[in-house]
């Protein structure tokens, strides 16, 4: 069954287990984010979009796949909002659906090189697909 946008936002909140309303929109997350310029929507917007239920645009954008999960936003947030967790929840809401993996198995081999540690591959698998 197709979920409408509001339900999807609700689902993302549920997966995150967090409350986006705690955000006071200071923007420190976006001030701290090292991947900011890779994103169309930025950490403070993630939180806001989930809160407002405006998530279709977010889930379609490449932004959610750009998060490095470096926890700079989590560490520095004065309100304990944890933007990174919302980003991950948005990813999970997507990749838990059939055929929605961000990383396809056949796409992996060309991305590898001799030196690449297992850790990178395992992490990327965990972060990008189910």
């Amino acid at each position: 069954m197709e979920k409408n946008e509001k339900e999807l936002a609700q689902l993302i909140q549920e997966i995150s287990g967090l409350n986006p309303k705690k955000c006071m929109k200071c923007g420190k997350c976006s001030g701290a984010c090292p991947a900011f310029h890779e994103m169309e929507y930025h950490p403070h917007q993630f939180v806001d979009m989930v809160d407002r239920g405006d998530v279709n645009r977010l889930l379609e954008s490449k932004s959610i796949w750009m998060c490095l999960t470096c926890f700079a936003c989590v560490e520095r947030c004065p309100r304990d909002v944890k933007p990174a967790n919302f980003i991950e929840a948005a990813r999970l809401a997507l990749i838990r659906q059939q055929g929605c993996n961000h990383l396809k198995d056949e796409a992996v081999p060309p991305l590898l090189d001799e030196e690449m540690p297992q850790q990178a591959i395992v992490s990327a698998y965990r972060k990008f697909k189910k």
Partner: peptide
Amino acid sequence: KGMVGKVAPKDGKLMVQASDL
């Protein structure tokens, strides 16, 4: 309107990384 996320001292200057919301 925004917040500073990091200040990095560099060559006697301060690199201020911040958001402009």
